[in-house]
Design a protein around this nucleic acid. Structure first.
Lengths: 212, 212
DNA sequence: ATGGCCCGACCGATCGGTCGGTCAGTCGAG
DNA sequence: CTCGACTGACCGACCGATCGGTCGGGCCAT
């Protein structure tokens, strides 16, 4: 996983995170992703970092403060990265392709954080920071919707329900963490490209080809 | 949610579950789905049922014994239901449609249990019963793969990678629980039908239509 | 000697699970 | 019919373990 420092969303007034804070966040992130937030104790995190629990609390006020920057940072960074990867002058199919491939690349780079964010997002009872997270997600979904709408207007896409098409695309991407194996033969971006190709062209052979 | 008794996988020698056991399983299932297995205490379940924790332990030997029949039952029942909904004489597209729609119908009927199963499946550290569950899942994936292969052989489908296509289909279905609203306008089966239509035909307009 | 980093020991709360015992119903012997 | 034995459902109280979090003090470079 690439350095978490690039995507973290620390508290507004705090400076850059120290090396120790970064280590704690990194280890905690991996543990949260594999065993869930409730399934990981603060002792586990401290042990994994080779420090005592008290020391961990010297760097973070509470357990939530470890989770928060991860979830917020991922939600925001994903959108910003994908947004930046879409060339405005590209045609809709190319934009959709960029959307999916950059999402997959992001997932591959920040795999643990991505998993943490996507699992916590839907189960977090905490209303705190939830609105802000939902804002970023809405912006992200709006970006995808915009691409689809543009495709419809230009005649490139033939879509009955934009919301449904968007959920189909996001479902394919968001489900990837469940089965993706980083040691597998294909990088995530190649998988996303295949997905995009199938989504655009459809699984069904064209009527002409069906006659073969 | 329909009666859980139809899908439960109780221990081999045990008789049919009593009314009380069914109540416990039903309430626990809903709680597990909304707050996760670790997020629900045995006290919570007992309280929701209006009984004491000791009474709950009179009916179940431990907390796992409440979760187990839910997860196993869903994994097995889903496959059997979908398998039964596919007419052998139908063409591949129709079979894929039946596969997706019946999956969605099953999800809608046993929504909480479905969510519990799909979340527990991937995070459960317990190796116990895991092999049996994976067997059913593999059979389920093989069923889908068989449909896709048949479509390729008959010329109905044009698919480069069957595994990828299968994951695309399952991703769309398995992601539904995250956003589906049972009070929404569309039943899950209608959504699955739309998904199937988009997957088969593709989002891209045919070259001819693109010229419009 | 002072402040940042770190620690062992400890806190109250809550976890999954167990304990002895109550109570209503059932059933067979007298 | 009645009475004791027995049973299954139920409960409050309790257990050791672990949870998130705190505290006072040690170490060490400035």
């Amino acid at each position: 996983m690439k350095n978490l420092v690039d995507i973290l969303e620390l508290g507004g007034s705090a400076g850059p995170p120290t090396e120790r804070m970064l280590q704690i966040l990194t280890e905690a992130c991996r543990l949260f992703a594999t065993r869930g937030f409730d399934g990981v104790s603060v002792r586990d995190i401290a042990q994994e970092c080779g420090i005592s629990k008290a020391t961990l609390y010297h760097h973070f006020p509470d357990k939530d403060a470890i989770l928060r920057p991860l979830v917020m940072g991922i939600t925001r960074s994903l959108h910003q990265r994908v947004l930046g990867a879409i060339r405005p002058e590209a045609d809709p199919a190319e934009k959709l392709r960029a959307f999916m491939m950059e999402s997959a690349r992001f997932f591959e780079e920040y795999r643990w954080a991505f998993i943490v964010s996507s699992t916590v997002f839907w189960t977090d009872p905490q209303a705190r920071q939830r609105r802000q997270r939902i804002e970023w997600r809405d912006r992200h979904e709006a970006l995808l919707r915009g691409i689809l709408e543009e495709g419809i207007r230009s005649g490139a896409f033939r879509i009955a329900d934009i919301g449904m098409a968007g959920r189909l695309v996001l479902g394919a991407l968001n489900w990837m963490p469940k089965w993706y194996d980083p040691k597998g033969p294909l990088p995530a971006s190649a998988i996303a490209e295949q997905f995009c190709g199938m989504l655009l062209a459809g699984l069904e052979a064209t009527p002409g080809a069906a006659a073969l």
